[in-house]
Design a binder for these strands. Structure first.
Lengths: 213, 213
DNA sequence: TCTGCGTTTTGTGTATACGCTAGTGGTGTC
DNA sequence: GACACCACTAGCGTATACACAAAACGCAGA
């Protein structure tokens, strides 16, 4: 693995995990020394993080970890809705119904509310679903845009803790989306995605509001 | 201006303009020598072009200008549809109706069919419209994704020559979209965008088919 | 004491050198 | 004659040195 990849992965983790808080100044030399790489690969890593939107230029010479406010979460979900609705619609028109039928079944039998191990298994199913969607749609532009959105989404997840009811509902929503894709029903797939994202966003915003009060 | 920016701009131009044909091997040393910069800024420029999707890795050590086939154009328009429909919808819900009313008027009085100067003026109106849309939507994730799509779209434009009828129709379609946004009608804005992109894609594909025959 | 100018320091942009890896061509052996 | 192995070369990843620019601090003068 290349030094620039390691530096990117490490910084990404630290920003997503909140260890590097928004506003933290990211100096080339400082980070390069800390992570034991030289400035050149560190520059590349920082460049990728800037492109991802996780680091931004505060002034001509200082880069800082970008903030992540409630308004950013709304923007993120707007973009997510545009991309994921389109993906669901296209997948429903094209996809192999076997794969999504199996995924729908997995969502239907998932019991993510039964402890952290079950939740992990549920997240793994979601990851498989996302991967299947990417392959079914087979559109580099959409997938690439969604990758950036997902990278930023990881930061939102940290702000909100999933509760029991939300996990159960989320599994049901995913099951419906997968069923709609398997059935070749683009409108249902898109609208079920819309509903799912609406609930996910509402849940995150409620969770943040609770956390503040 | 930084050397890496110059190198990026130059290579971008050459790829979009077709001077560097798909499949052309892009060597760091070769390009750095040719453009009179050193390898470090050239690496950065190439990295950005790879992120944009204009250059891709053919094998572990060779980068080539990526191909741009009919299938890529379809993918591009799928992504464009997802993003621009969402943008139009959001802008209609939010935008200052004065700005888009004025743009609608500009589209209505545009006569892009009257020679290349009039066409240039028309393209300038489109650029202003795109800019106004970006500002109205005010969503970095959507705008960034659309920027990448537009970068690739420039390659498609070279493959298709706009004809008289298409230009006239395009102006009318844009006028309708702008009017819908100004009127605060999200569904009409989105569907007019859909119609516009459908016609634009059809026109490009027809134009390519003609060019081949 | 405040303001302005100069100097120093810090940090980025660029250039270049070094080392490693992969690819290719040639030679030797079976 | 064909296949395999070794060596050479080309090109990339990384490190580092140098240059330049901006910001901050200090000193001096008003």
């Amino acid at each position: 693995m290349r030094a620039s990849d390691r530096a990117y992965a490490t910084l990404l983790d630290e920003i997503q995990g909140g260890e590097m808080a928004p506003g933290t100044v990211v100096g080339e030399v400082e980070q390069a020394t800390r992570l034991g790489v030289s400035r050149t690969p560190m520059r590349e890593a920082i460049g990728r993080l800037v492109a991802d939107g996780l680091i931004r230029q505060q002034s001509p010479r200082v880069l800082v970890v970008s903030g992540f406010e409630v308004e950013d979460i709304r923007s993120l979900f707007e973009a997510r809705r545009a991309l994921e609705e389109a993906m669901a619609r296209i997948a429903a028109a094209r996809a192999d119904s076997g794969v999504f039928g199996a995924l729908a079944h997995d969502f239907e039998v998932a019991k993510p509310e039964l402890g952290s191990q079950a939740a992990e298994a549920y997240y793994a199913v979601i990851a498989r679903f996302d991967g299947a969607l990417d392959r079914a749609v087979d559109n580099v532009y959409l997938v690439q845009a969604l990758r950036t959105v997902r990278t930023n989404l990881a930061r939102a997840r940290r702000l909100a803790r999933d509760n029991r009811e939300r996990l159960i509902a989320s599994a049901r929503e995913h099951a419906l989306i997968a069923r709609a894709i398997a059935a070749g029903d683009p409108e249902l797939a898109a609208h079920a995605t819309h509903v799912h994202l609406h609930h996910a966003l509402t849940s995150i915003l409620d969770s943040i509001k609770e956390g503040q009060s």
